[in-house]
Structures are given as C-alpha cells and as structure tokens.
C-alpha cells in the first residue's frame, strides 16, 4: 500500500483556483466592486436637491369652519416628502422627477351613473365654485403625519352639477396613465393607473374635497397637480392624485392598494389606532417636525363629523 505523506508545499486540489476563474479574476473583481459601489451610493439621495420655484398664487380663497387650528407643517416638508410612486418610490423622488411635469391642459372624464357624462376641461369642471382653504390633518398609513393648508372645493358640490343617478352608490377615481410624463409608471411597482374609490356618502361628505392647491398656491406637481382628492379621516393613500377620470358606479370599485395587499389595505382605510397594520402599529404617529410620536386619533380626529357614516360596521373587518 502506498501511503503518500503530504509535504508542506503540496496544495490540496480544492485549493487550486480553476483556470477559468483565474482568467476571469479581473472581471470577478470588477463585478464585485460595482455591486459594492451600487449598494453604497445607490440609496444616497439629496433630500434638499429640489428647489423648483413655487407655483403661482391662486385667486380669492375663503376660510372654512372645517379647518383645524393646528400649526401647518412647513411648505418644504409638505412638498419634499411625498408618496407618489408615479414619480419614484423614495420620499424625495417626486419633487425631483415631477419637476418638469406639465399639468395643463387637463381634462376630467366623467362617466357611469350620471346624467351629464363626458370629458370636461379642468377650468369648466371647477367653474362657479368658490375656492376654500381647508387646513387638515393628513395621516399616512406609514405612521407619519402632516397638517396641510389645502385649497379646494367640496367634491359633493361638484358632483351634484353632473347629476348622479339614483343608483350611483360609489365613486371611482383614476390617476393619469402616461409613462412618458410619469416615469415611475414604466415599472410595474403598482397596477397602473392608480385607482381609488369612495362610497357615495363619503364622497358627498362636506369634509371631502378636491384640492387644486396648498399654501394659497396651485398644487405643486409632486402633490398631485392639478387635481387631487383629500379625505382627511382616511389614510393618505385614499387621497388619489392627478385625477383624470371619475366614474359613478353601483358597486364598489377595485382600488390599487387593497388589490395589491388586501390583508394590509382595505377599501375604507379609515385612520384607526385600534386596528394595526399587519406589519406595524397604528397607535401612534410622527407629525413631521416633531421629535416624539403622538397618539393617533380615531378617524384622524374627525370622529364627530364622520363616525356616524360607519355606525353598525365592524371596523376591524371593514378596515
């Protein structure tokens, strides 16, 4: 039997670098370095990079008894910390990527169960309504919140002009779908176009507005120019931006987030500290500008006005 003792300079087979790997060593190193560099710097973004000029001021604006008395969040925070996946998924993306978006000319397509359907230029759509300032709390499902001085018109007042049918029970809204103008739509992050919906009584509630501005000026692009929904007692994702289509329906529409993750986002999405998101607590929130979290209020503090809409419903099931 031949017993071969291993000498110090012998190399185990496994330790020999295969020739193919040896020949590709520079390539392997380059790939690794590129990967490291991407991970290191890909996520870094300039939070204050976007300082586009402020939009023009809006005409006469009347005050509203529905306004909260809280101090509004700074203009910079309101316009540079946005969830608007059509313009990128990071908070600071929309301010940068929407900078060159042209919201005009704009028209709204009205269809479904109403007596005056059709495509209506935005100016006609808003004609005859007084602009109101509504200072509202805005609570995101991600647990941050703001106070925003919106400028808008009650949705119900506008809808009545187009004469909804008796059997119209829900309103569906759609965001513009145009990947050339909304670059985030080139990727399938969400099912485009973004869709949202309200029950008719929610849509007609005086707190529900279509906003065309904030801080006395036209809506900045990153905040949903030129026309967006604001439903202050619901999580922010209900307040759909850059609306091009409104459809009155007999049945509840599919909505984007609840379609994507039905166990996490419901159709109603009322702010509710008693019903946690499956992955995080909804009991507290961080108001932008604050250091510590504060308790979240049911219906975002609008319970007196809206709790009756949900009488008899189990809000842990209809979340």
């Amino acid at each position: 039997m031949l017993i071969r003792s291993r000498r110090a300079h012998d190399i185990a087979t496994a330790e020999i670098t295969p020739e193919s790997t040896y020949l590709r060593r520079r390539e392997i190193l380059a790939t690794a370095l590129t990967g490291v560099a991407t991970l290191a710097f890909g996520g870094a973004r300039d939070a204050r990079g976007a300082t586009t000029p402020k939009p023009p001021e809006l005409g006469p604006i009347i005050e509203s008894p529905y306004s909260a008395s809280e101090e509004p969040t700074s203009y910079d925070s309101v316009t540079q910390y946005n969830n608007f996946y059509e313009f990128g998924t990071a908070k600071e993306d929309p301010a940068v990527q929407a900078a060159s978006f042209q919201p005009k000319p704009w028209s709204v397509l009205l269809k479904g169960r109403l007596k005056k359907p059709g495509s209506v230029p935005l100016e006609t759509f808003l004609e005859g309504h007084a602009l109101e300032e509504r200072i509202y709390r805005f609570r995101c499902v991600e647990t941050w919140s703001m106070v925003v001085p919106w400028v808008g018109i009650p949705l119900g007042d506008i809808l009545k002009r187009f004469e909804p049918d008796e059997d119209a029970k829900f309103v569906e809204f759609r965001t513009l779908y145009d990947p050339e103008r909304m670059p985030g739509q080139k990727r399938q992050t969400l099912e485009w176009p973004y869709r949202e919906g309200l029950r008719m009584d929610e849509a007609m509630h005086p707190l529900t507005i279509l906003a065309v501005g904030l801080y006395g000026r036209e809506l900045p692009n990153q905040n949903g120019a030129p026309l967006r929904l604001i439903v202050p007692w619901k999580y922010g994702f209900k307040s759909i931006k850059s609306i091009t289509e409104i459809r009155l329906r007999t049945r509840a529409p599919q909505t984007t987030w609840s379609e994507m993750a039905p166990n996490e986002y419901g159709f109603f999405a009322n702010v509710n500290p008693e019903v946690d998101h499956p992955r995080w607590s909804q009991k507290r929130e961080r108001r932008l500008g604050d250091f510590l979290r504060r308790p979240t209020s049911k219906f975002n503090g609008y319970a007196d006005e809206v709790a009756s809409l949900y009488a008899g419903m189990d809000l842990s099931k209809d979340y």
Partner: peptide, 27 residues
C-alpha cells in the same frame, strides 16, 4: 440636512450601512 423626517432617515441609513458592511465582511 436629514430631510422632512430625520428620525426615519437616521433609521434607514444606519440600517443600510449595517447591512452593507456585514455583506462586505462576508465578501
């Protein structure tokens, strides 16, 4: 200079660097 939500930015950045360096160590 940490943006509108500094606590969130600190949380995300410290977490990202922990992960990057851990993976770098494994590389």
């Amino acid at each position: 200079q940490l943006g509108a939500n500094p606590v969130e930015e600190l949380t995300h950045e410290s977490g990202r660097w922990a992960l990057r360096l851990l993976l770098a160590s494994l590389a």
